[in-house]
Write a protein that binds this DNA or RNA. Sequence first.
DNA 1: GTTTGACTTGTCAAATTGTGTCAAATGTAG
DNA 2: CTACATTTGACACAATTTGACAAGTCAAAC
Lengths: 96, 96
Amino acid sequence: MLNHLGQKIRELREKQNLLLRQVAAKLEVDTALMSKIERGERNASKQQVIDIAKILKAKEDELLTLWLADKLESAVGDENHLASDALNILKKNLKK
Amino acid sequence: MLNHLGQKIRELREKQNLLLRQVAAKLEVDTALMSKIERGERNASKQQVIDIAKILKAKEDELLTLWLADKLESAVGDENHLASDALNILKKNLKK
DNA sequence: GTTTGACTTGTCAAATTGTGTCAAATGTAG
DNA sequence: CTACATTTGACACAATTTGACAAGTCAAAC
């Protein structure tokens, strides 16, 4: 289940009966790009996520967390078998 | 404490009394690049990590895990405050 | 103090990857 | 069929990454 952010955005957008086109306009990007972001074909920039949160009246940190999770997932790539150990190393360092 | 892989490589190399230049030669890269890899100024490619493991008689998966941890760390960037939640999302998906 | 050898640093061109747009295609409701 | 929303693929352009080279630092030997 890739692409947490896009799914969330789509869910929020549809719940508010907004068109892709409308959100894209507010974000000032092409509708095609917005479509790609929702489907996870393209990554949103951090600033775009912040702007989208505002447009969709969502909590900025909630969307940014999903955005980060997606980034991490693509960093893991197909190394799932190593990921668990790597995450443990990571966690240790986060504490600081 | 960034750069787990580079530190490990240097440790292994020094323990075997090998020169940067020698390892670089076996890897078929410039000594300067090898230096950067050890200091974390440049990332090694996956293939390079595999080759280095062989050259330094280390366990391939051990080095790859450090390599992945470094990748993840740089993906987190300066979003430490979101990382913990993002990692939890990640973990859930790794189970599959 | 000069030389030597190990390592580091800065800079560069080439290659790769990322970005947003456009036009065309697809899907879907009326 | 028409109209409109969304998706897809191709593209130009920008940004980043890559590895090499040359010049630099540093310490120990002489």
